[in-house]
Design a protein around this nucleic acid. Structure first.
Lengths: 109, 109
DNA sequence: TAAATATGCAACCATATGGTTGCATATTTA
DNA sequence: TAAATATGCAACCATATGGTTGCATATTTA
């Protein structure tokens, strides 16, 4: 059986990524330095408050970090969890490939 | 700006993975051949109906495929979407790394 | 200092989500 | 054929989720 891994439960992380708006925010933040809430809200059809909620969810998942700079809140990407998930997905795929290989050996003999 | 990619919107896929029960089902299915609903429900503290709902969600996301065999429904993993997501996560991380590199060049000059 | 800008917080809302129970139906198996 | 097994479908429920509006507060800027 596939080891669930030493890391934390990946489900909440996937859930944090399971929203178009949040993926879009991460994409914007992957583009360069940190941005303010107003900056991230511009161009969206959502209210600033809605965007703020999404940012807090991303922050709770560890996908972004925020810091107050003057009157604005700056958000920046934290890529570590993305890497964690990448490894996790890879482990499932590999485990599946191994299982298929074993099955093939079994069928061919 | 990071290209959203030629593939479909990854948000629904992430959402499908954003649940402990569903991740656990995928893990079980990555272990080997297909299993019936009853087989997948055994050992869970959920009802068979709840597990069925999760399986249908995974199926709608393309993460598993089902086929009726006699009186039972067999479910098997479909690893392709996992690979898609892996690539997607990788692209965000890479994009971020590139942005950081550019920033560094800018600061150092 | 007064006006403008950038947030934070709370209360509310409609709908989605994760589960359950109850009952019908299709296949096997004794 | 009768009992057991494996599902499917529907109706219901409590709570989570994604958004909004309204108003207060902290910083800048003119």
């Amino acid at each position: 059986m596939l080891n669930e891994g030493a890391g934390r439960d990946p489900a909440p992380l996937f859930a944090a990524l399971g929203d178009r708006t949040r993926l879009s925010l991460l994409t914007k933040l992957s583009d360069g330095p940190s941005r303010s809430i107003a900056g991230l809200s511009a161009g969206t059809d959502l209210t600033r408050q809605a965007v703020t909620k999404h940012l807090r969810i991303l922050e709770a998942a560890g996908l972004v970090i925020s810091s107050r700079v003057g009157r604005e809140s700056q958000f920046a990407l934290r890529p570590e969890p993305l890497e964690e998930l990448r490894v996790y997905l890879e482990s499932i795929s590999h485990h599946w490939d191994d299982a298929l290989a074993r099955l093939r050996v079994y069928l061919d003999r």
